[in-house]
């Protein structure tokens, strides 16, 4: 496991050092920008409602796939495209160890971006949302904590599954950007947002399931959430995400053994 930890530290370092975090952070702060404009120019805003109706979907539609892609794809692509992965694969450790390390490191590096995406708008909302007396205040804080924590949880768990997909494409294909765009955005976001039973086959369906439970979006149709008669339970959603992650990682490890370097 020493090998995994070392490479995890390396991948984290690679993604976080210098200006590398700037692009994912810029994407992650877009909801904040939306909110800022909304709060400044909007009339009579109800921040909590605003957050639930607009920011949760924006985070899931936009921040999640693109932050994951911007962080996870270069982790592997930079190594594979120049043959530098050979330095890891010619060490006396099995190949899945460095791969797992890269995956974990990349995933850790998405967390600051997600934190920014979740916390900055929440802080802005809470600043506006001044309750009159202390009792409603504590109550409100609890609700806020639940919503923000829930959204963060969904993003972090989802990026495990989507990140594993990115890793798989990075190992398996020479054009991982196109494949990942297809998988994360078209299959995930667009397909998952279509009304009808087809959305069950998209990973995003399960994310919405989690978001409904955890962020307290209980109505069937809220804001930009697709209408679903029977939203998946938390257990089913977690199983779905876990399955996709595990299968992707196993396939990636298998592909790494098969694919020639360069």
């Amino acid at each position: 496991m020493n090998g995994v930890m070392t490479v995890t530290a390396f991948a984290w370092r690679q993604r976080v050092r210098g200006l590398r975090l700037l692009a994912p952070l810029a994407i992650a702060l877009l909801p904040s920008l939306v909110l800022l404009l909304g709060l400044t120019f909007g009339h009579n805003p109800d921040p909590l409602n605003l957050y639930r109706r607009f920011l949760v979907p924006v985070s899931l539609y936009f921040v999640l796939p693109f932050v994951t892609m911007f962080v996870m794809l270069p982790v592997l692509q930079e190594l594979y495209s120049k043959g530098a992965i050979g330095y890891f694969f010619t060490r006396p450790v099995p190949r899945w160890q460095p791969l797992l390390g890269l995956f974990l490191g990349g995933w850790l590096a998405t967390i600051p971006a997600f934190l920014a995406a979740v916390l900055v708008p929440a802080a802005m909302c809470m600043a506006v949302d001044q309750a009159a007396d202390t009792e409603t205040m504590t109550n409100l804080t609890e609700v806020w904590m639940q919503t923000v924590g829930g959204l963060f949880g969904v993003l972090v768990l989802a990026s495990l599954a989507y990140g594993a997909l990115c890793l798989l494409f990075g190992v398996w294909s020479k054009k991982p950007i196109l494949w990942s765009f297809f998988a994360l955005f078209i299959w995930g976001v667009l397909f998952g947002t279509l009304p009808g039973d087809g959305q069950m086959w998209s990973l995003h369906y399960y994310l919405f399931g989690l978001a409904r439970e955890w962020c307290g979006i209980t109505e069937i149709w809220t804001g930009m959430f697709p209408p679903v008669e029977n939203p998946p339970t938390v257990f089913v959603s977690l199983m779905g995400l876990g399955l996709v992650m595990t299968v992707s990682l196993l396939l990636a490890a298998f592909a790494a053994r098969q694919r020639d370097i360069l």
Partner: peptide, 17 residues
């Protein structure tokens, strides 16, 4: 790989390290 050291021909490409 314990008994083998290898310097490949391509440039090293761990620029940020």
């Amino acid at each position: 790989f314990r008994v083998l050291g290898h310097a490949p021909g391509e440039d090293i490409h761990f620029e940020n390290e």
